[in-house]
Design a protein around this nucleic acid. Structure first.
Length: 602
RNA sequence: GCCCGGGUAGCGCAACGGUAGCGCAACCGAUUUGUAAUCGGUAGGUUAGGGGUUCGAUUCCCCUCUCGGGCUCCA
């Protein structure tokens, strides 16, 4: 008998991990009963439960999942003890001779002893971390079947992964279930269709977004706002073509590292052109078009530039992963390390301000550096990497944002800071990146005349603030659940005449609101007021203005806010004033929790 | 790109070897209404596309496209 562990005495995450990992063992036990020849991968705990990877003789079906679930519950009832045992590596290799993935794992283990765990009739190679017996695994639910590469590499075979959710209590499991449903309701693809924001049409192609008037309005408002902010922050806007010759990207190095992600070449009159996958080379050519002095630096060149990336078919999705996108891009040409540092700091502060205004909260910073040994993936220039990395870390600390670090994830030309965002579906997405680039200035032999009259090489800071309009809008839709703050709302007010005879007055009111640059619509259909209000609510229109005899009498409109508050009759002039000021303040709807106060809107 | 599962009217769904229905939306008509659904009528489909099996395919098989969940990758 193994020693018993008092689960109650363990820290919560340790206890949960043991429960989840143990459940994975129980799943494997069931699977081996269903498929005696199943080859076992690994079965770790994850933050909502567990999974186990198998190679199976046939695809798994939903019915199999039901069977596995029942079989697991049977095992749970029997309260089989988890017993650890150890054996030498040589013995293990013999024992697991028919399990290629386990052998693969063994290969990486130290010589000497390895451990395995047995419960019921099932034994798994395992380093441990279980509950005492199968009765303690906790409330779980098998959730999905997926494919996953062995050890996460697409060079390896693909295994069948079974996911399960597992929490300490049944209530937590149910709460998680409800959360999943909630996430589906918030999904930007669903809301985008319901609100008529954008369209993805087969004949236009996957990842090619068609913006309907409502969505185009959100885009335009974001665009105007960010461009104004950039002007305030000393950026200059340019506009460059979406096409360049192949040789431009050969020179930049993108061709070598990036060509699989580009749209195919276009050939005309003996020249090869491509749709640009990024804007940097264009901006660099603008920099290089004239002799630059240190007095001009930092030179901040910005453009909401359209880019084209042939994302692999399986990863195109809604607005969050598209093939043609508009990036809020800028390149800051800097003289010397100190300037790079202060510019990066300025960018981070701009990002914090913008995210604060938008009410974004589920994000964190991540510092990525390269692997200087991997010259295939990264530019070979160790001192550059070290300097950039240290610099970015200093800035993150100075701006006092939380961040974590990850190796081997940088851009090929330099280290970067990413802002990672959690989507409604619980997936992590990169929203923004800030990159320090010593490489492209070399490739393009960029120069400026320094204080001494000599020639120096600038450093480029690549940065985004609101990401691509596509991805940002996907996140905003989910964040607001389609209830955009007034300044972004496609239709800001609907005017509801009670009867047909009130339509002319409704039009007058609409005209006054439009004079105040408000986006309004008169619902002049021959329908009941109740229906019109219902539909305006479903379209998430922030304000409804009901007009009838009484309002005409008072030169007013009965104001109703999206939240449901009936604000009574308000003079039309006052309505214009009220809505305009709400719009100009970019106030968040009260139900969108603001950032924790550290990030004030710019 | 890879694994699995889908694709039936604008949306949500049904039928499953005998050439398709329902609800909502749309359109038309009546109604003129005081804060979340007025009533009636009409129209709408090469069942994603192509091929095969069959007397007959939306249904079974194959290919392509496409969507979803994952994996990998990324803004």
């Amino acid at each position: 008998m193994a020693d018993s562990v008092d689960l109650e005495l363990l820290p919560e995450d340790e206890r949960l991990n043991r429960m989840r990992h143990s459940a994975a063992h129980v799943l494997a036990e069931a699977m081996v009963e269903l498929f005696p020849d199943a080859e076992l991968g690994i079965g770790p705990p994850i933050n909502t439960g567990f999974y186990y990877d198998f190679r199976l003789p046939r695809p798994l079906t939903e019915e199999d999942l039901g069977w596995l679930d029942r079989r697991m519950r049977k095992s749970v009832k029997r309260r089989h003890r988890f017993e650890m045992s150890s054996l030498t590596k040589v013995e293990a290799e013999e024992a697991w001779a028919k399990q290629p993935f386990k052998l693969d794992l063994l290969k990486d283990l130290e010589e000497g002893e390895v451990t395995q765990c047995t419960h019921a009739q099932f034994t798994d190679l395992c380093r441990g971390g279980h509950v005492n017996h199968t009765g303690e695994v906790g409330p779980f639910k098998l959730t999905s079947i997926a494919g996953a590469y062995w050890r996460g590499s697409e060079k390896n075979p693909m295994l069948t992964r079974v996911y399960g959710a597992l929490f300490e209590t049944q209530e937590q499991l149910e709460a998680w279930d409800r959360q999943q449903e909630e996430a589906k309701r918030r999904d930007h693809r669903r809301i985008g269709r319901d609100l008529g924001l954008f369209l993805l049409v087969d004949d236009v192609g996957p990842g090619h977004v068609m913006w309907l008037p409502a969505g185009a309005t959100v885009r335009r408002e974001l665009q105007r706002w960010i461009e104004d902010l950039e002007i305030e922050n000393g950026y200059e806007h340019v506009h460059t073509p979406v096409v360049a010759k192949r040789k431009l990207y050969e020179r930049s190095g993108h061709w070598e590292h990036y060509q699989d992600t580009m749209y195919p070449l276009m050939e005309r009159e003996g020249e090869e052109y491509v749709l640009r996958p990024m804007n940097c080379p264009h901006h660099i050519l603008l920099y290089a078009s004239t002799q630059r002095s240190y007095r001009e630096l930092p030179l901040r060149i910005a453009e909401l530039g359209d880019m084209h990336r042939w994302e692999k078919s399986g990863q195109v999705s809604g607005l969050s992963r598209v093939r043609i996108m508009t990036l809020n891009d800028a390149h800051i040409f800097c003289a010397g390390e100190a300037m790079v540092e202060s510019e990066v700091e300025g960018v981070l502060r701009l990002i914090e301000g913008v995210f604060g205004t938008l009410g974004l909260k589920d994000y964190k910073y991540r510092l990525f550096f390269g692997d200087t040994g991997n010259t295939e993936k990264y530019v070979d220039n160790p001192p550059m990497w070290e300097m950039g990395e240290a610099l970015l870390r200093r800035v993150l600390q100075r701006v006092e944002v939380e961040f974590y670090e990850a190796a081997d994830e940088a851009a090929f030309y330099g280290p970067k800071i990413d802002v990672q965002f959690m989507t409604a579906a619980g997936r992590e997405e990169t929203l923004v990146t800030v990159q320090v680039d010593f490489h492209l200035p070399e490739q393009f032999e960029l120069e400026y005349v320094d204080e001494t009259g000599g020639r120096s090489r600038p450093v480029i800071v690549h940065r985004g603030v609101i990401s691509t309009l596509e991805r940002m809008i996907a996140i905003l839709i989910e964040q607001y659940e389609g209830e955009f703050p007034l300044w972004l709302a496609p239709t800001q007010a609907v005017i509801v005449p009670i009867a047909d005879r009130h339509i002319p007055y409704a039009e007058e009111v609409a005209a006054k609101l439009r004079e105040g640059r408000l986006r309004v619509r008169v619902d002049s259909r021959s329908e009941r007021m109740n229906l019109k209000i219902r539909e305006a609510r479903l379209r998430k229109v922030p304000y409804m203005l009901v007009v009838g005899d009484r309002e005409i009498e008072a030169s007013a409109a009965a104001l109703r806010a999206r939240g449901g508050d009936n604000l009574g009759a308000v003079p039309v002039d006052e309505i214009v004033e009220r809505l305009s000021s709400e719009r100009d303040s970019k106030a968040l709807a009260p139900w969108v929790r603001a950032n924790d106060g550290t990030a004030k809107g710019p």
